[in-house]
């Protein structure tokens, strides 16, 4: 658990959803870039205050999924997975919600502490789409906040939701993705086996990766596996320090 004096918010989303606009609208001019320790990746970070709490927002690369097919996807996934942000905000495009929900569902598999920011509500309206964010929130099991980041609409509600999820005032309970029955049976076995790892990460998520024979994830846990993956997989940082570097 992070010290709530310095809560961290990870900002993820598909490309072209106005994620950067949300980032700018949230943090204003309080931005700087910093290296994620151990990674040769520069991420932009900024701060905003709500109820006397200063939140650090980290802008993750825009991705369509978290399958770690590309360096960008891997950075986004590893940040949510290992830096354990207090809240992960997924910015989605209201005009093509279905496609954007794929990423939301994948984030929810990793962390329940998620807020969905439904951006471009004005554009959706113009296209004749009525997005019921209350219904969406119920279906997903996490807050879904309608926004028009360009004009700043909905940002206060977004900050409030982030605060509430970070402090535990809102308890989130994501609806899990149901896989085919044969996968679910195997997942149940593996999830039970992996339950001792629950304080570190979602056993169900890890079980799914193991079942998919995606052994690249193991390098983060088992030292002998460090060299087994391709050279394109970046070395993971030592996680001895847990405080984000943007404060130093």
């Amino acid at each position: 658990m992070n010290n709530l004096k310095h809560p961290i918010v990870a900002l993820s989303g598909n490309p072209n959803t106005g994620k950067s606009t949300v980032f700018n609208a949230l943090t204003g001019l309080n931005q700087h870039t910093g290296n994620w320790p151990g990674k040769t990746v520069t991420l932009a970070a900024g701060t905003f205050a709500w109820q006397n709490t200063t939140f650090t927002v980290v802008d993750l690369p825009g991705t369509y999924s978290l399958f770690a097919n590309s360096p960008d996807e891997e950075v986004a996934r590893d940040f949510i997975l290992f830096e354990l942000p207090d809240v992960t905000v997924v910015v989605v495009d209201a005009t093509c919600l279905e496609r954007n929900l794929n990423l939301v569902l994948q984030v929810l598999e990793i962390t329940p502490k998620t807020v969905v920011c439904v951006n471009l509500m004005d554009e959706a309206q113009r296209q004749g789409l009525v997005v019921d964010t209350d219904k969406l929130a119920t279906e997903l099991g996490v807050p879904a906040i309608p926004c028009v980041a360009r004009s700043g609409k909905g940002l206060a509600a977004l900050k409030k939701a982030i605060f509430n999820v970070a402090t535990g005032r809102i308890a989130t309970s994501p609806r899990p993705i149901r896989y085919d029955p044969n996968i679910e049976i195997a997942l149940a076995v593996l999830t039970k086996e992996l339950s001792p790892l629950a304080p570190l990460l979602s056993p169900r998520w890890l079980a799914l990766r193991l079942l998919e024979q995606d052994e690249s994830i193991l390098q983060h846990f088992l030292p002998e596996d460090k060299t087994s993956t391709s050279s394109l997989v970046m070395q993971h940082p030592s996680t001895t320090k847990k405080v984000a570097p943007w404060f130093s």
């Binding site: 939301v104 569902l105 004749g128 993705i177």
Partner: peptide, 17 residues
């Protein structure tokens, strides 16, 4: 499975004029 879930949720929460 992920796409199917996304589709179900999207259908329930978006109405198209």
């Amino acid at each position: 499975s992920i796409f199917d879930t996304a589709q179900t949720i999207a259908e329930q929460s978006v109405k198209k004029m």
